[in-house]
C-alpha cells in the first residue's frame, strides 16, 4: 500500500511538472506580458536556469558519490594488504 502511494506520488509529481513546465515555456510567451497569468510563473530566465542548475547539481553529486566510493575501495584494499 505504501509502495503504491509512493508510485502514485511520483507519477502525479512528474505529470504536474510536465504540465507546469510546458505551460511556462511554450504557452506563456504567447500570452500578453501584462496578463494576470504571469503572476503565477517566475520570470522566463528561470525556465532555463533552474533545469540547468538541477542538472549540474545532480551530475556533481553523482560524481562526488562515485569518487568517494573509489577512494574508499582503494583505502580498504590498502588496509587489507
Amino acid at each position: 500500500m505504501n509502495d503504491q502511494l509512493a508510485g502514485l506520488g511520483l507519477l502525479l509529481f512528474s505529470i504536474s511538472v510536465f504540465v507546469y513546465y510546458t505551460l511556462w515555456v511554450i504557452v506563456l510567451p504567447f500570452v500578453d506580458s501584462d496578463h494576470a497569468v504571469h503572476s503565477y510563473f517566475l520570470p522566463q530566465e528561470y525556465a532555463i536556469a533552474l533545469p540547468v542548475g538541477a542538472l549540474v547539481l545532480l551530475l556533481s553529486f553523482l560524481l562526488l558519490f562515485l569518487g568517494i566510493l573509489m577512494v574508499r575501495s582503494r583505502l580498504g584494499k590498502k588496509k587489507k594488504a
Partner: peptide, 14 residues
C-alpha cells in the same frame, strides 16, 4: 518527467 513517471508507474503496479 517521462523517466520519473515510468518509475512511478512500475512501483505502483509492482
Amino acid at each position: 518527467c517521462y523517466s520519473l513517471s515510468v518509475v512511478g508507474y512500475e512501483i505502483m503496479f509492482f
